[in-house]
């Protein structure tokens, strides 16, 4: 057995996660202000804080005959799943909890998001929210298989499901260099997992907010914060999987992990302002006809390379 992880990291992890989630939200606000042509876009930096302050004092609103328990479970599951997924992500070289099956654990938390969004959409007893829930399930059918193949391909290249070992296996040559298809598919599924930007159909504007339409006050805050946290975790996992983990010159490993995470996160946030929402009735076909075969080929190439 290895030495135990320091106790303070258990406290530091949620703080770090919340900080990065805020940074993503602030960056998103600034990009939006730039797009709206506001003369001082930097002033939008504090918008997420003001929004959060408002959510804290806003009344909780009800719908007729909701299933409160399921709605609450759905809403709370988002940040909980994000935090539990973050536990296995190595920052530098060590995660808070090093699991031999870290990749599987991360995937399990991601699937919990399916349940969370569906319960939130279904529980409030509102047609718009229900359609938002449906949309997430359809989206899941489109991205989940390519996503799992992307995870497995990286794990196959390293010969381990432990994220720390996956990162260590990229000594010298990052996986992104010889698994580009897997990396791109992973980024795509990262957007889908956080139902963000081009994959934000479940909470899209044509449904006035979709699965989140009936939420207000603290419920909305927890839901949206959870979504940003998922985006952060999805970006953070890309680092050990494809970008060499904490490897890099001069700076300590944890700094490199953070720098790379922020770079991926910024790209994901930026995608929202660059691309429009993908509708799954259109996208499903491409996902199954192109993404899955491409991922299978990528996995085959990796399997042949690592063959002893």
């Amino acid at each position: 057995m290895r030495e135990a992880t320091a106790v303070w990291t258990v406290v530091a992890l949620p703080i770090l996660l919340a900080g990065l989630a805020f940074a993503a939200a602030a960056f998103n606000s600034v990009l939006r202000a730039v797009g709206a042509g506001h003369p001082e876009p930097a002033r939008a930096l504090t918008d997420p804080l003001r929004e959060a302050a408002r959510s804290l004092i806003v009344q909780r609103r009800g719908t007729l005959a909701p299933d409160r328990l399921l709605t609450r479970i759905g809403v709370i599951s988002l940040p909980v799943a994000a935090l539990l997924a973050a536990v296995v992500v190595p920052i530098g070289t060590e995660p808070v909890a090093r699991l031999r099956i870290g990749v599987v654990w991360f995937n399990a938390m991601e699937v919990a998001v399916w349940g969370a969004v569906w319960l939130t959409g279904w529980g409030v007893n509102s047609a718009y929210a229900l359609i938002g829930g449906y949309r997430f399930i359809a989206q899941g059918l489109a991205y989940e298989l390519p996503h799992m193949f992307a995870l497995i391909t990286a794990a196959l290249g390293a010969g381990s499901l432990d994220l720390t070992k996956v990162a260590a296996a990229q000594d010298g040559l990052w996986f992104v260099v010889w698994m580009p298809v897997a990396f791109v598919v992973y980024l795509f599924s990262a957007l889908a997992m956080a139902f963000w930007g081009p994959l934000g159909h479940p909470v899209a504007g044509d449904l006035a907010g979709g699965a989140a339409v009936e939420l207000s006050g603290p419920d909305r805050l927890v839901f949206l914060a959870g979504r940003y946290m998922l985006l952060v975790v999805a970006a953070a996992v890309a680092v050990p999987l494809f970008l060499g983990g904490g490897a890099g010159p001069l700076l300590p490993a944890w700094t490199w992990s953070l720098v790379k995470t922020c770079a991926v996160l910024a790209a994901l946030v930026w995608a929202r302002h660059r691309l429009l929402v993908l509708r799954m009735d259109r996208f499903m076909e491409l996902s199954w006809m192109v993404l899955i075969p491409a991922m299978l080929l990528q996995a085959l190439v990796v399997a042949i390379v690592v063959l002893p």
């Binding site: 159909h201 044509d206 429009l276 929402v277």
Partner: peptide, 16 residues
């Protein structure tokens, strides 16, 4: 139309 299509940045540009 762009707003409904889920492209808020382009919709904002059209508004400006």
């Amino acid at each position: 139309l762009l707003g409904v299509a889920g492209w808020p940045s382009a919709a904002a540009r059209a508004g400006r």
